[in-house]
Design a protein around this nucleic acid. Structure first.
Length: 303
DNA sequence: GCCAGCCTGTTG
DNA sequence: CAACAGGCTGGC
């Protein structure tokens, strides 16, 4: 689901609510969602120190551990205040009490009603203040990894990340150098490669190539330095704009408070095949690049 | 590179 | 019914 602007929006929405709170043991309804070497895992009593982000990873620092959260396609993190969280927490505890491995137990009738409000509920994290955080994920691709404090690099995917697309590390020079190492790669697949730049996904790859007037299928090595410099500036401003609008909600993305973003109103090509290009009016086309649906304007975007 | 696979739900 | 969906991994 979420790309850099959505994950950043979630981070910002949760940060003021979570900082300083003391957590209890996490409760996983589906065991595969929680990945850790520590068995049994002990997080209880640790205070939330910081909420960070790199690329599409959300980083929750406690005192002795860090949680590394990847929402993949349909993952959601939602903050619930005490009155909403407690009934859910108790129902989930009763459900897992008889099936510690997270086998889908049969909840009691009144528990079923509470849990039914969140059919994709995978994990709960409770705080001493009575409120909590839930992780919901329809497609079950999302993961929450637990490592010793700030040892994010133990997650191979995280260790391999290139510079975050909005960080100071991604200078224009760094961007040009990184792309120069992959001249035979199509520019869209290079943008989607998290080892080159971290945070861009299918929406923002298509939108940034539209704004930079570049065909997604163009080989990275075939593009002039000036066009790549333009692409760099476009990516930066596009992602900042999307963060400012709270991300893109065309389907199920919401921030940590359940609020939708607004960047979908600014999309030029994504999910708009057949509709007129906002610049030239010709129909937006769809093709496949790097195995992903890819939209572009054949007139405005050139090789 | 490409493609299946991981999952479930929605859309044509 | 098949195709597709905001991501990533691992096999060729």
């Amino acid at each position: 689901m979420p790309e850099l602007p959505e994950v950043e929006t979630i981070r910002r929405s949760l940060e003021p609510l979570l900082l300083g709170k003391v957590c209890a043991e996490p409760l996983a309804l589906t065991p595969e969602v929680l990945v850790t070497e520590e068995k049994p895992l002990h997080l209880a009593g640790e205070r939330v120190q910081a909420l960070g982000r790199k690329g599409k990873y959300l980083l929750l620092d406690l005192e002795k551990h860090s949680l590394l959260i990847h929402l993949r396609m349909t993952g959601r993190l939602l903050y619930l205040e005490k009155s909403l969280f407690q009934p859910l927490w108790q129902a989930a505890q009763r459900q897992t009490a008889f099936c510690p491995r997270g086998e889908p137990g049969r909840p009691a009738a009144d528990d079923a009603a509470g849990l039914a409000a969140y059919p994709c509920l995978r994990l709960l994290l409770s705080f001493d203040s009575g409120d909590g955080l839930i992780f919901c994920d329809q497609r079950r691709f999302g993961r929450i990894y637990v490592y010793p404090f700030q040892e994010y690099g133990q997650q191979p995917g995280f260790a391999a990340l290139g510079p975050d697309a909005l960080s100071e590390d991604l200078t224009e020079k760094a961007f040009l150098t990184a792309l120069a190492a992959h001249p035979q790669q199509r520019i869209k697949s290079a943008l989607l490669d998290q080892q080159i730049v971290a945070g861009i996904g299918n929406i923002y790859a298509d939108e940034s190539l539209f704004r930079a007037h570049i065909r997604p299928e163009a080989l990275a090595g075939s593009l002039s330095q000036s066009r790549l410099r333009r692409l760099y500036k476009v990516i930066r401003s596009l992602l900042e704009e999307a963060v400012g609008l709270g991300g893109t909600s065309f389907r199920d993305y919401v921030n940590g408070l359940g609020q939708r973003g607004h960047f979908q109103l600014s999309l030029a090509v994504y999910q708009r095949e057949g509709e007129p290009c906002p610049v030239c009016g010709r129909p937006i086309k769809k093709t496949t690049v790097a195995g992903r649906g890819t939209r572009y304007c054949p007139s405005c975007q050139r090789f």
